[in-house]
Design a protein around this nucleic acid. Structure first.
Length: 431
RNA sequence: GGAGAGAUGGUCGAGUUGGCUGAAGGCACCGGUCUUGAAAACCGGCGAGGAUGCAAGUCCUCCGCGGGUUCGAAUCCCGCUCUCUCCGCCA
């Protein structure tokens, strides 16, 4: 949600900034309706003041046993008028909210305009390896090593689901433990939120109403339905919705582990086989609520944390600054941490770190009280994956494969590997 | 799933014969007096959002949410949501 006052004061500036992400708006009509709305509000409030005034005289008239009929009739008309106006104002407010809710966030000034073709590589870690003769891609590797069972996953559920098994399941769990350990060490509070959320959470996060069809909806209808979370961000953002936090308790640093469920309707592409894109994947999500003046620093902290996690695994990766049009609608700036997938000769996102500024805070009414002025102000919210495993495992198995088709487990994971250092191919027909 | 109770400001908690109650009181918090400092005591302040205004201010709305009755509702009626207690069922 953008600041209405800002739009009112500098409509051209807002429109120009939104154009950087490819979003075209003209606020002319919106603002004239806003003026109309405020005029009606003003008029109605005057009527209400009059009503309150007259109304308070009634007890006196009663006491003096005066005649109430005239006043009562007058007030009845006044009330009718007020009721009509209120109905109209309510409609206008609703229209305005709908319009505002549909506007994406204003991109930060320090990111490139335009679409993903304008993304910029910020830094590269490691040397992208080429595909040597005899090297396998991750789909073949995880199957031959008995780590993932795609076929039976589809049998149990449908296309886009898989089973982690044996060493694959252990590796997955080890990754999560590794991530958790790092976040705890950095002073983040761990959370395990509900996986089924109400509509409000989707709205606050900025996913709804536009992307309602991207999630698995459960019961209810209209603005009532519950859904299975597409990312823990959707849960964490709303943790402090409708609250006024103390300035002294900011920043709040959280992380959560949840599976993420996404419909990914129509997004299948042949080059995204395997675990690159599924309807369910595991992710640890980092989140911060900060004061506005601290959010930039927090953003860099999250970027640093995400890339350090990949670095700890010894995996080739890079950091990219996304162009305005490639950032999520709720975000003003996003850096992606992308991991090298040798078989695809391409970097794939393992983490997306974003700052929403006060956009989500406005939607969720997440505020804090400024210690010096005593005023309330909106928090800033930031989030970042730390990390999503479904992209990390392909990178691990490909980047860490040995000539004989086995996989050397990254050292940082060994404490949770239950003695497995090398994952060997299983004998054919032995699955 | 069945039965009952309840939802008031940061928190606790008054307020049910509808009318200066946006809401007593306690606590917390902030400022001041006192004190070498702190505590205690005393004095004062202390909800949010909005309209208008340079400002001081004035006005409006909000007592879970949404409707209704009424000249007027935190107070009466209806619907919804959530919480708690008891019973049943169950991982």
């Amino acid at each position: 949600m953008l600041d209405l006052v800002y739009i009112r004061n500098k409509p051209e500036e807002v429109a120009a900034k939104l154009a950087r992400r490819g979003f075209d708006v003209d606020f002319t009509e919106f603002l004239s309706r806003d003026a109309e709305r405020r005029a009606l509000m003003h008029e109605t409030e005057t009527l209400k003041a009059e009503r309150n005034q007259k109304s308070s005289e009634i007890p006196l008239i009663k006491k003096q046993k005066g005649d109430l009929a005239a006043v009562t009739e007058q007030l009845r008309q006044l009330s009718d008028q007020i009721r009509d106006n209120d109905t109209r104002i309510k409609e206008m407010n609703a229209d305005q909210q709908t319009f505002l809710a549909g506007l994406p966030n204003i991109p930060a000034d320090d990111i490139p305009a335009g679409g993903k073709e304008n993304n910029e590589v910020v830094s590269v870690w490691g040397e992208p390896m080429t595909v040597e003769a005899g090297m396998k891609n991750h789909v073949d590797l995880v199957e031959s090593c008995g780590m993932i069972d795609y076929e039976r996953g589809a049998k149990l559920s449908g296309s886009g689901f898989w089973i982690y098994r044996g060493p694959g399941a252990i590796l997955e769990w080890a990754l999560l433990n590794y991530f958790i350990g790092e976040h705890l060490r950095d002073g983040y509070e761990m959370m395990l939120p509900p996986h089924i959320l109400n509509y409000e959470c989707g709205y606050v996060g900025g996913q709804f109403p536009k992307f309602e069809d991207d999630v698995f909806q459960l019961r209810g209808q209209g603005e009532r339905f519950q859904f299975i979370l597409p990312t823990a961000e959707t849960a964490l953002t709303s943790v402090h919705a409708e609250e006024i936090l103390k300035e002294s308790e900011l920043p709040k640093k959280y992380f959560a582990f949840t599976p993420c469920y996404r419909r990914e309707a129509g997004s299948y592409r042949a080059d995204e086989r395997g675990m690159i894109r599924g309807h369910q994947f595991n992710k640890v999500e980092m989140f911060q609520f900060t004061r506005p003046e601290d959010s930039e620093e927090a953003f860099m902290e999250l970027v640093g944390k995400a890339s350090r996690l990949v670095e700890g695994l010894g995996l080739v990766h890079r950091v990219s600054r996304l162009a305005a049009g490639d950032c999520g609608a709720a975000m003003r700036k996003t850096f992606d941490i992308e991991i090298w997938i040798p078989s695809m000769q391409i970097y794939k996102e393992v983490s997306s770190v974003s700052t929403a500024g006060d956009y989500q805070a406005r939607r969720g009414n997440i505020r804090y009280r400024q210690a010096d002025s005593g005023k309330t102000a909106f928090c800033h919210t930031l989030n970042g994956s730390g990390l999503a495993t479904s992209r990390v495992i392909p990178a691990i198995v490909e980047q860490c494969q040995l000539p004989d088709g086995s996989i050397r487990v990254p050292e940082v994971l060994l404490p949770w590997m239950h003695g497995i250092e090398i994952i060997h191919p299983v004998n054919p027909g032995h699955e």
